[in-house]
Design a protein around this nucleic acid. Sequence first.
DNA 1: CCATTAAACACCC
DNA 2: GGGTGTTTAATGG
Length: 235
Amino acid sequence: MPVLARKPAPAPVSMLDMIRTAPWTQALTAEQMARVEADVEERFVPKDGYVCRKGEPVGHWIGCVDGLLKMSSVSPDGKTITFTGVLGGAWFGEGSLLKEGPRQYDVIALRDTRLAFMPRTTFHWLLDNSIGFNRFVMTLLNERLSMFISLVEYDRMLDTNARLARCLAALFNPHLNPGISPQLKISQEEIGYLANASRQRVNGALRVLEEAGLVQVRYGGITVLDVEGLRRFNG
DNA sequence: CCATTAAACACCC
DNA sequence: GGGTGTTTAATGG
C-alpha cells in the first residue's frame, strides 16, 4: 500500500459552515457576508507546521476551521513558551492587525489543521462598516486581556496544577473558543504542549483536578465540569 | 533535597 | 497504532 496515503478526512465542517455559524457574522448584512465569503481563503497546515511566525508581517485574521493550534514564543535560550491553545471555531490575530509592526508570536499546528485566512483589508473594511463586528472584536480583545492577566498571575504563583487549571479554563472560554463543548478530545500530551508541562505531570494535575470535581478524565480526552472552578482553582 | 522530566516499557483502547 | 499509566535514571533549582 502507498506509504503516503492520507486518510481522506470526512471533512466534518466546511470552511463556509464555520464562517456562517461564527458569532461575528451574525450581525453582518448580506453584502458584508458576501464579501467575507469571497475574500476568505482556506489553507491547510499539517501537524507540527507553522501557521505563522514571530517577526513576519501580519496580513490576515485567521480562523481555525478544524484542528488544534498553539500560540507560542521561543525564549532566547531556546525554551518554548506557550500562551494559549486555539480550537476549531476560534479566530485570532485581531490584535496584530490593529497595530503596525510584525507578529509577536508563533502559531504552530498540534494536529493537521484547516484554517480560514481573511485578508487584512477585509478585516479593516468590516471594522469600518459594521458596528456589530466592532462589538465582537472589542469583546474578544477584552477576553484576551483578562486571559493574559491571568497568565501573568499564574506564572508568579508557580503552581503547576493551578497553571494547568487556568490553561484549561482559557481553552474552554466560549469567547476565545466559540462553540466548544464540555467534552473535548485532546490528548494529555497536547495539553502538555499548551501548559508547558510534561505528559506525566499533566496526568498528575488532571487527577488532582478530577479529585476536586472540576474535570472528568477519559481515554483520549477530558470533560470539563466546572470552567469557573478551573479559573479559580488554587492549590 | 525536592520536583520535574525524558526515556522506556507495558497495557488498553 | 496511538494514548495512557508507571518506573527509572537524569536533571536542575
